[in-house]
Amino acid sequence: MTTPLRRRVLIGVVVVWVVFLVGAPIIALTVGAFSSGFGAVLEALSATDSVSALAFSLALATIAVAVNTVFGTIAAWVLTRDRFRGRTILLASVDIPFAISPVVVGLCFILLFGPHGWFGPWLKAAGIQIVFSWPAMALATVFVSLPFVVREVSLALVEAGTDEEDAARTLGASSLAVFWRITLPNIRAGLLNGVLLTSARALGEFGAVLVVSGGIAELAETGTLFVFRALDDRRDVAAYAMALALAAITMAILGALFVVRRRAAHSPVRTREVLR
């Protein structure tokens, strides 16, 4: 019997791989943060600049989730339900934010909205500040987390098919009523999946936000930028504490995702009752 042995070796390799790549950094982070004691972590996290950085990160993530949920759902709807010229190209270009380095994304926004960018003079004349301020950071965060909702909702829409929607139309429902009463309940699990992934990605964004923020501290600093600056300033405990806080939030989101996926995988009837 060679198979069980081969299986056991494979399982062992996977376990070691995951523990080293995922587990070890988190353990190191936790140990590093608490090396000066629990009190030091709490103190570092309750400092004004860390509280505002964390709050700013959550605000940016909220904006990204709100924008990408609405436009992602609309985009997924159009891309799966309509047939038009250029549809497949559009579908493929939804993944561009995954393919481009966030630093390059940030650079693109500078080239568009910076003082010497395409819209720079016009924005300046209108008195609107985008780059080196929060609007650009929000734009960058929205951009890098764009694909999740589109992808998850597209999959859910394809799986749900159009028969139920057609049936609802013939029964007298307007297209808006069909969306709220038939389509949305059918894609709810996929949408939730997309929202959770979007928020996790938005919280973790660093490169694009760093470039468009122009490095102006305190005024517009996210959690990840805080970690970067604290390390530079040799405030190790503050850096570890913030990193740990960000990791904890993301882990909570992934935990929620796990629960959603498990429910969706089990009895569909019960999931729908629970999600209702």
Partner: peptide
Amino acid sequence: VPPERRGVGMVFQSYALFKH
């Protein structure tokens, strides 16, 4: 006339019952 105002009842091969 759009489908919701035609007053037709339709039955589909796939049943198309609302699962939720």
